[in-house]
Design a protein around this nucleic acid. Structure first.
Length: 145
DNA sequence: GGTGAGCGT
């Protein structure tokens, strides 16, 4: 039943379920390279997705916690706890961008599964984000000049 | 928020 638990577990938890014997790997072969893209974890990137945060954990708390493992850019620029826009409460996860990829890796290795404000947090590479605008067509703000 | 998986105001 460890397989079901690993499949139902969040992305950051699958690492803790990596005690799968080879016989199980034969019964459940991983998809070959090229079959997955956005549904799996993103490739190494300087941007980190951090989940499992406490509701009380703020952006600056996140920044100072990840700063001891690498160079995180200034608060408000590359470290942010996602909060609800209307209520202002934390959603329990956030993002941290390191200066270099090696620092991002050290940040994950150092903070993944660690405690922050009493909660076990999960750090992994953030997925590539779709570009906000595509200036190939007509720009939106037109007609009020 | 006394809400607990998740990929962003």
């Amino acid at each position: 039943m460890a397989i079901r638990a690993a499949a139902a577990a969040p992305r950051g938890l699958r690492r803790l379920f990596s005690t799968i014997p080879t016989s199980m790997s034969t019964l459940f072969p991983p998809p070959a390279n090229g079959g997955v893209s956005a549904l799996e974890q993103a490739e190494p990137n300087t941007n980190l997705f951090v989940s499992g945060l406490s509701k009380r954990t703020t952006t600056e708390r996140l920044q100072e916690a990840f700063s001891e493992f690498g160079k995180v850019v200034q608060v408000g620029i590359s470290a942010r706890v996602v909060t609800d826009r209307v209520s202002g409460f934390s959603k329990g996860f956030g993002f941290v961008r390191y200066a270099t990829l090696e620092d991002a890796t050290k940040g994950i290795e150092g903070m993944h599964g660690k405690f922050l404000d009493g909660w076990v947090i999960f750090a992994e590479y953030a997925r590539p984000r779709p570009p906000p605008a595509q200036p190939d067509n007509m720009p939106p703000p037109y007609g009020r000049q």
